[in-house]
Design a protein around this nucleic acid. Structure first.
Lengths: 248, 248
DNA sequence: TGCCCTCGTTCCACTCACTGGAACCCTTGC
DNA sequence: GCAAGGGTTCCAGTGAGTGGAACGAGGGCA
């Protein structure tokens, strides 16, 4: 085998991952060549693997285009962590949206990002920060800060080691300031992010605790920065997070 | 390699599938031995594959138990067909529930089953027929009949070839009667299922058409069989299905 | 119509990733 | 203390998987 690249020793499963990850949410389907290019694998290999993936229904083919298949959706719904949390949270989120009329998000920490588990649009014109399944940075979102505030300091250091990416002029890229803010959150202040990820969008979030003080996720309310009333929303979010925890 | 069984020639991807499918929604996590037993694979093979799957985050480990991981959830959300349909349907479903106060389901046909793409509980005490990601038989549900009525007759024959499984005394196991009912649906009658899957639960459904008359899914309303008012609900469901189609 | 470019599949000799029984730790429980 | 069970590691053997090259099927352009 002629490994094109650096030091890799790829197994079939790793190649499969490369292929699956080549799909994005923008696409209406990818061909073998495009897939091979994105995954950095030879065409023949991709062709063979893809046909197995289609047989197993992880991919679907329509003519010469391929798309992520239904079975992935099914299996994804069986994933334990999001399933439990969603189940406990959905009714609470619904009423939170009804009370605030703003968009509501539920997310789980995954490494140095938050993964959105549920999203509900407030008003029809309200912005949705992420779709379900999407990822958010920890340091630039209220959801991320809520989760980050209640974990080990070493996590923060590890995060900062890679540098805090700047999303908008408001993004907190200074480790010291961020650490102070997290300390405030730990002391009881609400986790907020004002235009730190997207200009014009503000959020308030509250962590969801499981037994032993472990943070299992976070709820947030987000809306247009103009007229975003943190003082009104923060108690609502906090109450919702507690309600979810009670239902776990 | 000593293939224990019959005539199989399993590749790594097939083995992986066996492992992933060993997980059910009942479990709080499986160990290597249990997994190996369910998948019918040697322990050492399972151990090795599982550790790769964990590295790729398709599985998560907690102590000596494994569970389906977050990445599956993420990827599942990227699957194109459910994503598009859900996006178009969610607002419509919300208002359908508000108007009927009954549980609402959205499903996609997949082979000889329907896969639930979205589910909303009507009243807090209302029964949910399936959870999101769950599967339903075609012949015993309103959703299935709605989809089945508008496809080729050969589909029906293929379905009947395996025999129509009986779920309750009311399940339609007679091919002739089912075919007549489907013809009625095709002629404009609503697709209904009264206690045919679960005793005490009735449903009405309507197919969702895409361009070229292709059925892409179905919407249903379901509730307690006692006092289930088909005449009132059928027009609501039909209107919702049309609304979803318009938004596609 | 013929030419060319692209895209997906197939072929095939090579070889390394994968296999699985056995041995090896652990921890748990009697 | 020993037996039982669960998970990981070892290792020789080999066939599943590899990828370059060749092939056939469109599709656009002149």
């Amino acid at each position: 085998m002629v490994e094109t690249g650096t030091d890799d020793a790829l197994g079939v499963l790793d190649r499969m991952t490369l292929i699956l990850e080549a799909f994005g949410d923008d696409d209406r389907g990818l061909g073998i060549s495009e897939l091979a290019a994105r995954a950095g694998l030879p065409k023949s290999t991709v062709s063979r693997l893809v046909s197995t993936l289609v047989r197993q229904r992880y991919l679907e083919r329509e003519g010469r285009r391929f798309q992520l298949g239904l079975r992935l959706f099914e299996m994804g719904q069986l994933a334990q962590e999001p399933r439990e949390l969603r189940h406990a949270a959905l009714p609470v989120l619904t009423s939170l949206r009804a009370r605030t009329h703003e968009s509501v998000h539920l997310a789980i920490r995954d490494g140095d990002e938050m993964v959105c588990i549920a999203a509900m649009r407030g008003r029809p014109e309200s912005p949705l920060v992420v779709r379900t399944g999407g990822r958010l940075p920890l340091h630039a979102t209220a959801l991320g800060k809520a989760a980050l505030a209640h974990t080990l300091d070493s996590d923060l250091d590890a995060l900062a080691a890679d540098g805090l990416e700047s999303w908008t002029p408001e993004t907190m890229t200074d480790l010291e300031r961020l650490a102070r803010q997290l300390a405030g959150i730990r002391a009881g202040k609400p986790a907020v992010a004002t235009q730190e990820l997207f200009t014009g969008v503000s959020c308030v979030a509250s962590p969801i605790f499981a037994a032993a003080g472990r943070v299992v996720g976070a709820v947030s309310v987000s809306g247009c920065a103009a007229g975003f009333d943190v003082d009104r929303l923060a108690p609502e979010v906090r109450a919702a997070a507690l309600a979810v925890a009670r239902r776990l």
